[in-house]
Nucleic acid binder design. Structure first.
Lengths: 243, 243
DNA sequence: CGTAGGTTTGACTGATCTCAAGTTTGGTGG
DNA sequence: CCACCAAACTTGAGATCAGTCAAACCTACG
């Protein structure tokens, strides 16, 4: 499915519509934004720690993640991103990136000059509010991740990550929560949960044994959501989204 | 040291001045905000998960933290807060609190009606930008905490928490980075680092043995910052602050 | 059909947790 | 000012979850 230029800003409008109440004048302003549609291959760094912002990227197709590393080489994924997500909003107001943004599949994204993004945030109060709210939801998700890696055991941690991924896919209109393809490797799941790939493999096996998920290649089917949610200790309130 | 009404909004103005460029008209608008100065004892909940916002609190004296809990009773502190910090900005745009805010010492705070806070954020673009930037910095700190709890060992974790605390105290103009009183218990340090109090006690002892800190009651002296920073893997970039 | 990346499995190690008993500290009331 | 109490901190010993290392096994793709 190729993305044409018309689709691109429509995705952004849809995202902002989910984040807050917009009038037609706001939507028109978004549609009038200058932008380019670009692609990048799997594993490509869209932004590196220390970069200055020149463009603001909106993910259109594929999946990406934010990563940070310790000086001793430990790698931590701090969030996953999917179609519709605005990837570097924080660069509008902070001078330098404090983390990397990396594609985990081949990706397509719209690149809007940061200056134009800043301008519509200043000129359109409802867009300002929607974008600010997006920043706040991001922060809420990070708080939940601190709890997840800080206080849950390996099974709950992995299950929680999967629940969030499923719930956000649905909220973004990308499909059902019951069955989906996992775009990330077990190494990446390990990096997101603060575990090792060996434990992730064993944990996924156990979740299968528990009868709450079925796996087939990268496809995952949640066969018992109620029980899966219990194991994951997942409460979607922190996502602050409908759907 | 008692806080009078004049001091209260001055603290807020100073905080916003650190967050972005303000004109006198902006400062006047802040000083004209209606507010009440309130106090709460140690351990008091200022906001509970699920609460709706009616007021926006700015911490004037004392220390507070944000906490989340797992359904099995695990408790995680996701941030510490000190004088000048705006405690529940996210409630301006999100309908319900997704975490608790709790005093860790006796606290004094200014309580501003959320509606008025929302109003000046709408009417004064520079204040809007400063507050939005504050939200972004919050998010950056949470990302660093995910890394801290997910990928550092106990010694680096505890040391990193202390480094951040020291650096933020200095940035907030509360004293030196070399010597300060720790307002939190070892149980609270454990809750912030995803460890247990027993390990925190042993880790602090080890940091003493390493010759990088000296402890006397709750007083901590960093005797070798360079080495302490190395152990902690601390790089203050993520705080996005001067000082 | 060969290779590389990803996943699974096994055996062993070790950091952190748990439980439990002491010790110190700080606040309170006599 | 001192005695007492509760909370916080320290210390020890044993248990456990997750980490490490290494080999084998898939599977996708050139």
């Amino acid at each position: 499915m190729a993305i044409d230029d018309n689709d691109a800003l429509t995705k952004v409008v849809q995202k902002l519509d989910r984040l807050g109440y917009l009038e037609d004048s706001d939507r028109d302003a978004v549609r009038a934004l200058p932008f380019e549609v670009k692609t990048a291959p799997k594993d490509h760094f869209l932004i590196r720690e220390g970069d200055e912002a020149t463009d603001c990227c909106v993910l259109l197709e594929g999946y990406a993640c934010r990563t940070k590393t310790t000086s001793s080489g430990g790698r931590q994924i701090v969030s996953f991103h999917m179609s519709g997500d605005i990837l570097d909003l924080q660069l509008l107001l902070l001078s330098r990136a404090d983390h990397n943004i990396q594609a985990i599949t081949d990706v397509t994204f719209a690149s809007v000059p940061a200056a134009d993004m800043r301008r519509i945030a200043q000129e359109y109060p409802r867009i300002n509010e929607a974008l600010w709210r997006d920043t706040m939801i991001d922060a809420s998700v990070f708080r939940e991740w601190v709890l997840n890696v800080g206080r849950r055991d390996s099974k709950a941690r992995v299950a929680h990550m999967l629940c969030e991924f499923a719930a956000r896919r649905v909220a973004a209109g990308l499909g059902s929560a019951e069955r989906f393809e996992l775009p990330m490797t077990q190494q990446q799941i390990a990096d997101a949960t603060g575990l090792t790939p060996v434990i992730v493999s064993r944990t996924l096996y156990e979740l299968g044994q528990d009868g709450v998920i079925l796996r087939d290649q990268n496809e995952v089917e949640i066969t018992d959501w109620a029980r899966f949610r219990d194991i994951a200790d997942f409460d979607r309130t922190y996502l602050h989204s409908e759907g």
